[in-house]
């Protein structure tokens, strides 16, 4: 087991945001957390990457507890977080943004290699390499955010709403890319509102409602579940 979250409790001030969340991610998997707005999906990712303080429970990564580490230490362990809203540095170029992703690395040849990989995966970024981050379209910014995450050469990639604000064609493209990243050996924890797409690429899923996990299982099972179909898949299912 690569990542194990046990009885996670997180508060925002007095608001109890996560109630004893437990789940796990195995090496090589894509696992998705689905649920509506405010269910706590983003909070879970932010807790794993230490952007939020954890009040109770444990986060165990490769057998070691990591809940008390600082965000920048988490990255060094091989967990890369592609945050909600992309968080591109608008006044830096595409290349500079990507190089920032390799901040924790010092192996020049390896960094160059990762850069080439990112460019192969996202040819559009290569075309725009000298452009400022702020001048990219939403889809390109999402690609840049994922590319930046990959530059750290992570074992585990945390993706927060990669489909947000993208056109349907781009959503397909992004999910294809997510699959292909996974096939090359990167484990992925995917948070999505687009449950339909998420359950297609993921092997397993967890359904969240107001800070609790209400359902879990293999993606096929979840896709067929009455509750999930009614609440998250709408008429598509």
């Amino acid at each position: 087991m690569m990542l194990e979250v046990k009885n996670l409790d997180v508060f925002y001030g007095n608001i109890h945001a996560l109630h004893g969340i437990s789940f796990e991610v195995n090496k090589g998997e894509i696992v998705t957390l689905i649920g509506s707005n405010g269910a706590g999906k983003t909070t879970i990712l932010r807790s794993i990457s230490a952007l939020n303080r954890v009040r109770g429970g444990e986060v165990i990564y490769n057998g070691k507890p990591i809940a008390n580490l600082k965000a920048h230490q988490i990255v060094k362990l091989g967990i890369s977080h592609v945050p909600e809203g992309r968080r591109i540095i608008g006044s830096l170029t595409v290349l500079e943004n990507l190089m920032m992703g390799a901040y924790i690395r010092s192996d020049k040849a390896g960094i160059q290699e990762s850069l080439e990989e990112v460019f192969t995966r996202f040819p559009r970024l290569k075309e725009r390499v000298k452009q400022l981050g702020a001048t990219l379209s939403g889809g390109e910014q999402q690609m840049l955010a994922i590319g930046r995450g990959l530059m750290a050469k992570p074992e585990l990639l945390l993706l927060d709403e990669p489909s947000m604000g993208l056109s349907p064609i781009l959503v397909e493209e992004i999910f294809d890319i997510i699959s292909s990243i996974n096939k090359l050996g990167t484990t992925i924890l995917l948070v999505e509102q687009n449950a339909f797409m998420a359950l297609q690429v993921a092997q397993r899923g967890y359904v969240l409602e107001t800070g609790r996990i209400v359902l879990s299982g293999p993606s096929e099972k979840l896709r067929e579940d009455e509750q999930v179909r009614a609440a998250y898949l709408g008429e598509i299912a």
């Binding site: 990457s49 952007l51 600082k70 965000a71 920048h72 988490i74 990255v75 060094k76 890369s80 977080h81 592609v82 945050p83 968080r87 591109i88 540095i89 608008g90 006044s91 830096l92 500079e96 190089m99 920032m100 992703g101 390799a102 901040y103 924790i104 930046r148 995450g149 530059m151 750290a152």
Partner: peptide, 24 residues
């Protein structure tokens, strides 16, 4: 240098800095 990029990241978006492993 990469320090310079870290400076800019902190100015523009501390979360972006955090997630790439920069200690703000």
């Amino acid at each position: 240098s990469s320090h310079g990029r870290a400076f800019t990241a902190i100015r523009e978006n501390e979360t972006a800095a955090d997630v790439v492993g920069i200690s703000p």
